[in-house]
Design a protein around this nucleic acid. Structure first.
Lengths: 215, 215
DNA sequence: ACCTGAACACCGTTCAAGT
DNA sequence: ACCTGAACACCGTTCAAGT
């Protein structure tokens, strides 16, 4: 039918147009996340990405100076998404239920780590940049993502449920524990059905140790 | 001088011979560890390795079926070295000083993680093998490496310093915490001078939470 | 402003051939 | 038994050229 032909031609033109209006960057990032999830960071190739998205192999250069720049952008987007997930976990609990919030955030973190294990590894890979220094933008995004955890600790301290003290330090141990559980799962040293129990233990230990410190 | 010429020719022949007698494999593994330490796993190239060691680019194939097999061998060797380091840490403490032993092992672990951050990441990368399953040999090596930690917990339980219970589960939380501290350090979220304090906190929390569980 | 096509130097993998 | 050399298909990066 004529209308079908017309509309399909229109769609084609629109798609072509979109790439000329700044959407190639998003398309590349979206596809890159899929590839990482399916086959890992090592299998991520700029040329294949360009092919998948229907553009020449040199086109990504407009948006990402090199492969490292693409990885940095992925890490940045990853921290934004992780931050949203942690915040959503935090908001699942009732406002005064600090223990519940701590557990919900921990579970949200591990869920993210399971679903996007390779992306998380990339996010924590550090040494973004040729000379081995930490990318300041990514570092800031990471700290922002963990904001809900710190707020939680400060709130609990205000409510006298946790002893006063540097929330960064108290929270860092807890964060390390959760992150470590995710790593052990990824390595196969912990099975999927053990994870929930370990996360519960970690949250309980976090609260218990805080009380212990207080005594 | 004649003798110098003779001996240098002898050395050359010996080196050539060594490669023909099964040392190419060790030479490749040794050089690979250096490259990983200096420039990371992603920068590891079989061809460059062969060049560095003075052999043709196809020679490594005799000893490693492909790049993945080399990485597996590196992970295996890494766990052997990590196990030795943890055992050495354990032996630093007096036989009856469980708290000291736990702290020493934790510090040994983080030291390894700092010195060989990229290797450790490779060791925990999981999914060795094309279809995403965990390599059984590497998994066994990992469990063997963490043997000293489990022994420690069992000993402490026998001495009634820790509550009875599954040592794997009790120890796994502690191990996760230490591993997580290493990851946060690598990511730049924790500075090098904070690490010792965090490790001390983690060890104290481990013992405190155990006491708490007992009560 | 954004993308293409050709070019360059690298890489992993394979395989016949050498000693 | 162990290694070499040529070959293939891929990759990241660069750059002149197109629209």
């Amino acid at each position: 039918m004529l209308s079908t032909t017309t509309s399909s031609a229109t769609v084609r033109r629109v798609i072509e147009r979109r790439y000329h209006h700044g959407n190639l960057r998003e398309a590349l990032l979206r596809r890159a996340q899929e590839v990482i999830r399916e086959r890992g960071v090592a299998a991520l190739s700029l040329r294949e990405l360009a092919r998948d998205v229907g553009v020449s192999h040199a086109a990504p250069r407009r948006h990402f100076a090199d492969r490292g720049a693409l990885l940095d952008a992925l890490a940045l987007a990853g921290f934004a998404r992780l931050g949203a997930a942690l915040r959503a976990g935090h908001d699942e609990a009732r406002p005064d239920d600090y223990g519940g919030a701590i557990r919900a955030v921990a579970h949200a973190y591990v869920d993210f780590a399971v679903r996007d294990a390779d992306l998380l590894e990339l996010m924590f890979a550090g040494k973004h940049g040729d000379d081995g220094e930490v990318n300041a933008e990514i570092d800031a995004a990471a700290r922002a993502a963990f904001g809900p955890v710190l707020e939680l600790i400060v709130s609990a301290q205000d409510a006298a449920l946790l002893p006063a003290g540097d929330p960064e330090r108290v929270g860092m141990i807890h964060l390390a524990t959760i992150q470590g559980i995710a790593t052990l799962l990824r390595a196969g040293m912990v099975t999927a059905d053990q994870v929930d129990g370990l996360v519960e233990d970690a949250a309980a230990q976090f609260l218990a140790a805080a009380v212990q410190t207080q005594a």
